[in-house]
Design a protein around this nucleic acid. Structure first.
Length: 827
RNA sequence: GCCGAAGUGGCGGAACUGGCAGACGCACACGACUCAAAAUCGUGCGGGUUAUCCCGUGUGGGUUCGACUCCCACCUUCGGCACCA
């Protein structure tokens, strides 16, 4: 078997052995320090794609590396198993139940993961569609409900006609469904929400604590939360008891208000126009806007349309009459749904005022410039001094913001206020294949939560899947009809299921206690393992999953169910896998199947290539020839090590003081490689350069092998072979294990301590330094490694070649850089 | 429009703290082995036909003895947000 690299036999052999020996099962309370290494669990679509292979290869290197470095590593895997594709498959093909479809896919993908040799503790596997799991998803819903964080309200929500369900704001991209790209419609529906907005300030503030997260992701979350400071100001409506409250970030410009705008959906609109000639027109306008898709409504090019209501309100600061308009550009969801129009100092207001000939009044004058309404080409939004502002005239605008806010508070006309763009998380879904929302509606008692003892609310299996656009649960009388837990009378169950992002917001806690039937997790175990030390996944979850998970963790922390306030200490967002410069996709026909690659070259080659081709955060360009190259490299390792199997000395540790020449050099390269790989993997996750270093070690070993045997110290080669196999183990675990055994070691290579380097060994006696004249490399010379800077300069200046190059020019100064170079500056 | 990231050989990429640009791999060329091919091994491989020379890290400027690296302006590509008052 040792004559050629037979990856098929080797990989099957070790996968079986590791499984039998349960090698990657981890103790909950061992005495080594803990490390929780987690990769985002996949949706069981049926087959792994290259993105998965990349994600899980990265995680496996880290897990194996940490294990060898003395940690108890929790490295689990599971399935984000509820979701639309299963149900759509049932509708389309009829024959297969979503549960069966999902289970089949899980089995297939688990097999693929095992074939890749990823070191998971499979005892901890979870699937979110299993009643033993979703019982606790429902339990968590109830905890949020009891804390007032889950509530039902009627609102204009995003409806995807193709998915036949509502979507959260986070799932709408540019007005389209992020899953199927259909145009999202607006619908007025009563839906369940989580009050994530209650946590907006903490979700924002704690981003600062996440030093191990990419800046990019933190900025995206920061923008999504969208904090802005300002004030709420109340305007009285002329001839009504009603008032209009606006939110503004520029209370210093209130004296410049020349009109007021309400969102078409604003509740006051109908009252204001009642009995007026404008009533019909405004109502039609409001209906039209309401029906508009998110995209049409919010696109920047959309024309701003405004209509006068006929009503006026009163500016609380100067008592002026201000006309009230309705306009499509004001959003009901943000702030108060009403905006004060200050055309001189807001670009949108400016354009709107020009279009409808509304007056423009300058109330902020910039230094060194005189603004005049008639000559302004655009709004002035910068700093300046307040003018036309009664008692505030002469106040700098920055101070004015505070001064006006204080004044409004004193007079009871308004107050300082912080606003967020983040909206509450809509979790209802009108689909079958999800966790049922554990709520019962009773005519007598109203909304009644399902008692915890009655959980889980089981998803019935005998349902019909028809493309009706209605949830199959609605048409299942045995599910719908129930008794009220409160009064025992007849009642109906909620038929919506939960957004699957709810299931994935807490799975990393469940891995600590995957089979606990009485609790979502054992607090002791969560205390031991959480937070996740390293989380790895695609950047497409920068907002969705990662924001929801942070929210959940904060709620659980407040409930004293966990001790950590953040779930993921370090986050690695891996880049996409591309082929021919584009993301692999069926429609483009550029998909490379992991199965084919593993079959043709083996898992070790597949893993090695995907880690070698690019650093993890960057996109990776797939290359069939690059894969070949990695396969060649592993063959090279095989041909180097396998023939040595019987002939290596038993022990590699010897005194190294006497080493000279090639032996010393081989010894030095071995230790240099240990240093490089340890740093690249441990500190930087630069697996590509770590693998390069291992390749260089192998190249050096080939050279060393050419040296006549009589000139070689046998233990130097033994040391190099051992180091090579240990360093290679996290990347190519099967071949490393096989060669480890072949070269006569007891026990698994994966249970060895990570090698350490000897600083003495990497010291060189002589080094090559560069000689520069005016910063340009002109010569090189060999000098003793411990040379002093002044000696370097002296030595360089004595060089024949240096004198030649200097010629008649004058030496202005010499700059020695220890260990590197000497730069001679001449004129 | 705003925010962010990235631009280095034919290609993927390296250069970690301002100090030898192009490590490692791919592709290519030549040589060895072979009846031959594949595999393997060896040599070369940014450009300027020659090199102890000159040019070269998206473009233009700057700082510095010295810049892929720092600063300013711009171009291109990718990602995110997009009437948020």
């Amino acid at each position: 078997m040792s004559d050629r690299y037979d990856f098929k036999t080797i990989e099957a052999k070790w996968q079986k052995k590791w499984d039998e020996q349960d090698m990657y099962a981890v103790r909950d309370f061992g005495n080594r320090p803990k490390y929780y290494c987690l990769e985002m669990f996949p949706y069981p679509s049926g087959k792994l794609h290259m993105g998965h292979v990349r994600n899980y290869s990265i995680g496996d290197v880290i897990a194996r590396f940490k294990r060898m470095n003395g940690y108890d590593v929790l490295h689990p895997m599971g399935w984000d198993a509820f979701g639309l594709p299963a149900e759509n498959a049932a509708i389309k093909y009829g024959a297969v139940h979503p549960a069966q479809w999902t289970m089949d896919n899980i089995n297939a993908m688990r097999e693929q993961l095992k074939q890749l040799g990823i070191s998971y503790d499979w005892h901890r596997e979870v699937a979110t569609c299993h009643p033993g799991y979703y019982k606790w998803t429902q339990w968590l819903f109830l905890q949020l409900y009891h804390r007032g964080l889950a509530y039902k309200k009627k609102a204009g929500v995003n409806w995807c006609p193709s998915c036949a369900t509502v979507l959260a704001n986070e799932q709408v991209k540019e007005g389209t469904c992020e899953r199927c790209k259909s145009l999202v419609e607006k619908r007025e529906l009563e839906q369940w929400f989580f009050k994530i907005t209650d946590y907006a300030d903490r979700l924002l503030a704690d981003l600062k604590k996440l030093e191990g997260w990419p800046e990019k992701v933190k900025i995206m979350q920061e923008n999504w939360i969208g904090r802005s400071e300002g004030a709420e100001i109340t305007f009285a409506v002329e001839g009504h008891d009603e008032t209009i409250t606006v939110f503004t970030t520029r209370p210093d410009t209130v004296y410049g208000v020349t009109y007021m705008v309400l969102a078409p959906e604003h509740p006051l609109v109908e009252k204001l126009v009642e009995g007026r000639e404008q009533a019909l027109e405004i109502k039609q306008f409001a209906d039209r806007v309401r029906r508009q898709s998110e995209l049409d409504r919010t696109s920047a090019e959309a024309e701003k349309i405004g209509l006068f209501t006929g009503a006026f309100c009163i500016n609380p600061l100067n008592g002026e009459r201000v006309p009230i308009l309705v306009a499509n550009y004001v959003l009901m969801e943000y702030g108060t749904g009403a905006v004060m129009g200050v055309p001189a100092h807001d670009q949108r207001d400016f354009e709107f005022a020009r279009k409808y000939n509304l007056p423009i009044r300058v109330v902020i004058q910039p230094a060194g410039e005189e603004l005049h309404p008639d000559t302004m080409a655009e709004a002035y939004t910068g700093d300046g001094v307040m003018v036309n502002s009664g008692p505030f005239n002469g106040t700098p605008s920055r101070e004015g913001i505070k001064a006006v806010t204080r004044y409004l508070e004193e007079k009871g006309l308004g107050h300082g206020r912080v606003n967020y763009r983040l909206r509450d998380w809509l979790i209802s879904r009108q689909r079958y294949w999800g966790a049922p929302i554990p709520i019962i509606y009773c005519d007598k008692c109203g909304v009644v939560p399902v008692p915890e003892d009655d959980l889980p609310v089981l998803l019935p299996m005998d349902v019909a899947f028809k493309p009706t656009g209605r949830s199959p649960l609605e048409e299942h009388p045995d599910f719908v009809n129930t008794t009220c837990p409160s009064c025992g009378g007849r009642a109906r169950r909620e038929t919506d299921t939960m957004d699957t992002f709810m299931c994935s917001s807490w799975y990393y806690y469940r891995y600590t206690s995957p089979r606990d039937e009485n609790n979502p997790w054992d607090p002791e175990k969560v205390r031991r393992w959480l937070p996740v030390d390293q989380y790895i996944g695609g950047v497409e979850h920068a907002i969705l999953h990662l924001l929801y998970s942070r929210f959940f963790t904060k709620v659980l922390y407040d409930m004293k169910l966990v001790d950590n306030e953040e779930p993921f200490t370090n986050l690695l967002t891996q880049g996409m896998v591309l082929k021919d410069g584009a993301k692999m996709s069926k429609s483009k026909g550029n998909v490379v199947s992991p199965e084919d690659i593993v079959a043709a070259y083996g898992a070790d080659t597949a893993r090695l290539f995907i880690l070698f081709a690019s650093p993890p955060e960057r996109d990776l360009e797939w290359s069939d020839q690059g894969v070949e190259g990695c396969y060649r490299f592993l063959n090279r390792v095989w041909r180097l090590v396998a023939p040595l199997a019987g002939s290596l000395p038993a022990v590699s540790i010897q005194g190294n003081g006497k080493l000279v020449g090639v032996n010393k050099e081989m010894h030095r390269i071995t230790h240099l490689t240990i240093k490089k790989v340890t740093e690249d993997v441990g500190n930087r996750f630069n697996f590509n350069t770590a693998i390069s270093a291992i390749m260089e070690l192998v190249n050096a070993m080939y050279q060393f092998r050419e040296v006549p045997e009589t000139d070689r110290q046998p233990w130097v080669l033994r040391e190099a072979v051992d180091a090579l196999l240990l360093l290679l183990a996290p990347f190519a675990p099967h071949i490393a294990e096989e060669l480890w055994e072949l070269t006569g070691h007891e026990g698994s290579v994966h249970q060895q301590p990570w090698p350490s380097y000897d600083p003495e060994a990497i010291v060189e006696d002589e080094i090559t330094i560069v000689v520069q004249i005016n910063g340009k490399v002109r010569d090189r010379m060999l000098v003793p490694a411990d040379i002093k800077p002044q000696e370097m300069v002296d030595l360089v200046m004595q060089q024949e070649r240096v004198r030649e190059l200097i010629g008649g020019k004058k030496v202005i100064k010499t700059i020695p850089v220890p260990g590197k170079l000497v730069n001679v500056v001449v004129k």
